[in-house]
């Protein structure tokens, strides 16, 4: 798909075939319990590539695949490779096709739940956790720096609160009891630190390290929002300087 859909004609074929072939076939494979893990994995990868080919402004596409993909990710009985492929497909679809930032937050909440040591009462595989953190980082690139690293005793609010899942409904609900003013990235730091300290998985450590670098970069950029044209040296020595100082 990604190699052949390079011209306007072939891309039109993808759009034309989306409703009658691509979505029904992939969603059938994903929903079907009799499909082999390889087939389910291929279906998720196909949806992931389709998101890139469709481009921005395709909320309908996300709407149709969100629910079956979330079910796959939540199903602890499914193969890890299938679950992580489903999570990557969902996140990339929000990143490329989505137009509603609230939906992006919703998907980030979901990634935050999956990257915890325990999800839905079971320990989460470290490879899946690594991919959840990668997906979270991807979605974090589209939100405002103040939402990501604001708060923590510094002016500018975060998105507010941590998120927990309602086990009965399987729905993400907001826990507003603490950290109201902290940005999402700031709230993630203790978890990332724990993974870097304790995990033996190279993938998880790398994903956490990259997320930390992204959060740190956003924090630096927060102090440079009015000085975008500064070079690295200026950025290093002028970061965070208060105008009155």
């Amino acid at each position: 798909m990604t190699q052949y859909a390079c011209t306007d004609t072939t891309k039109d074929v993808i759009v034309y075939k989306l409703d009658e072939t691509i979505l029904p076939a992939t969603l059938f494979s994903i929903r079907s319990s009799s499909a082999s893990p390889a087939e389910q994995y291929a279906a998720c990868r196909c949806l992931e590539a389709t998101a890139i080919l469709l481009g921005y402004g395709n909320d309908d596409f996300i709407e149709r695949m969100e629910e079956p993909l979330q079910k796959v990710i939540k199903s602890t009985g499914r193969a890890i490779q299938v679950r992580l492929a489903a999570l990557r497909a969902l996140s990339l679809s929000y990143f490329i096709c989505g137009t509603d930032i609230m939906e992006v937050y919703h998907c980030m909440n979901f990634c935050e739940l999956v990257c915890q040591p325990k999800f839905r009462g079971e320990y989460v595989n470290e490879l899946l956790r690594a991919n959840a953190i990668e997906c979270w980082s991807l979605l974090a690139t589209v939100i405002e720096d103040s939402e990501l690293v604001g708060g923590s005793n510094v002016g500018g609010g975060g998105s507010g609160g941590t998120y927990v899942v309602d086990e009965d409904e399987g729905e993400v609900i907001k826990n507003t009891s603490n950290n109201e003013d902290m940005g999402r990235g700031v709230q993630m730091l203790p978890l990332l630190q724990k993974c870097l300290e304790e995990s033996n998985s190279m993938e998880l450590k790398t994903a956490c390290g990259e997320a930390v670098a992204l959060i740190h970069e956003a924090r630096l950029d927060l102090g440079l929002s009015n000085n975008d044209d500064l070079n690295v040296t200026q950025r290093k020595f002028q970061r965070g300087l208060f105008p009155l100082r």
Partner: peptide, 29 residues
């Protein structure tokens, strides 16, 4: 204002200690 934590750096923030520990961890890795 000078006494308050500065936007753009972690100095004076609640997570300054975590950031210092993360720096050490990453340097070790």
């Amino acid at each position: 204002f000078i006494l308050l934590p500065q936007t753009g750096s972690w100095e004076g923030s609640d997570v300054e200690v975590i950031i210092d520990e993360l720096k050490q961890l990453v340097s070790e890795l």
